[in-house]
Amino acid sequence: MDHDERSLHASSFGAAAAAYAEHRPDYTQAAVRWALGSAPGPRVLDLCAGTGKLTAVLVAMGAEVVSVEPDPAMPAELRSAVPGVRAFQGSAESIPLPDGSVDAVVAGNAMHWFDMAVAGPEIARVLAPGGVLAGPWNVLDDEVDWVEGLAEISGNAAIGPRDTPAAWRAETARMHLPKTGAPRFGSPEQAGFAHGQLRTADSLVATLATRAGMIVMPEAEREHALGRIRSYLASRPETAEGEFTLPMRTSVLRVRRL
């Protein structure tokens, strides 16, 4: 994906903010607890916070949270879901916070959109010494047979290059954070946590429709792709009728500011 295409995808979510808030999964407290495990204090920046899926978990865990989001359409959903959280417009490359003002920076399903050459030093700037940068991603557990089939039938627009555990590990291995100069980051750590989301065939299709690749797709092409997914779900006994649990993993990348 070239720079212009990545920018188009990264800025697409506001067009589906309400659907994103309704259908995207939350994050397990176990995953978020591990993400923050090395943080020296409770002040947390939820960076590119979107509609507040991760923000709500952080608040429930007792963190002092401030959010930053570049898309002006998303914070209205966040404020509705998590009233009282301070929310600023900004980006990973331009964070409107003072130096050393937070103990952890977390970014849920978002770090792959960052220009790390710029965002890495900017994140390090707002982190206190010893602070943690962590990215949790919700990915599909394709070790489950019907989920593997779903990934194959959906195409990259709906289930992309970070949306299964093995693909996530390969993609995050290519993320580069400053390891020279000052400030810099230590070696990355990874962990995975079981997760699941209660869905129906219709709500799973609605969830996949909030993926960036689907949002930017021409309407006729998008409807064809979603129709293919609907047909597959109707053909599987696990998903054809009623509610089911979508098997997922929350995969977490964590690094410490030195």
Rank of each mutant, 00 (worst) to 15 (best):
R33F: 03
A128G: 04
T245F: 15
F114G: 03
W137E: 10
H224T: 15
P237Y: 11
R256S: 09
S203A: 09
R236N: 06
A225H: 09
A206M: 02
T245G: 10
A220N: 14
R33T: 12
G135T: 15
E22C: 03
A73M: 11
S38P: 03
E241N: 10
L226Q: 08
T207I: 00
E22M: 02
H176W: 06
A10S: 13
L8P: 11
G41D: 13
A191N: 03
V216H: 07
L47H: 08
P40I: 11
G155N: 07
A182P: 01
G37P: 02
G90I: 10
S38Q: 12
A173L: 08
S7T: 13
L150K: 12
H224I: 14
A92F: 03
R256Y: 01
E122M: 05
P40D: 01
R199P: 02
A167I: 15
D142R: 05
T51I: 15
A158D: 02
F244A: 11
E77M: 09
E171F: 14
R24G: 02
T172G: 00
R256K: 13
R184G: 13
H176Q: 12
A60R: 13
R43L: 00
R184M: 07
N138A: 00
A234K: 11
A39V: 10
G100R: 14
A35L: 02
G160M: 07
A206R: 05
F13I: 06
P129G: 06
V66K: 03
L127F: 00
S91C: 14
N109T: 07
D141I: 05
L204D: 11
S94Y: 06
P75C: 08
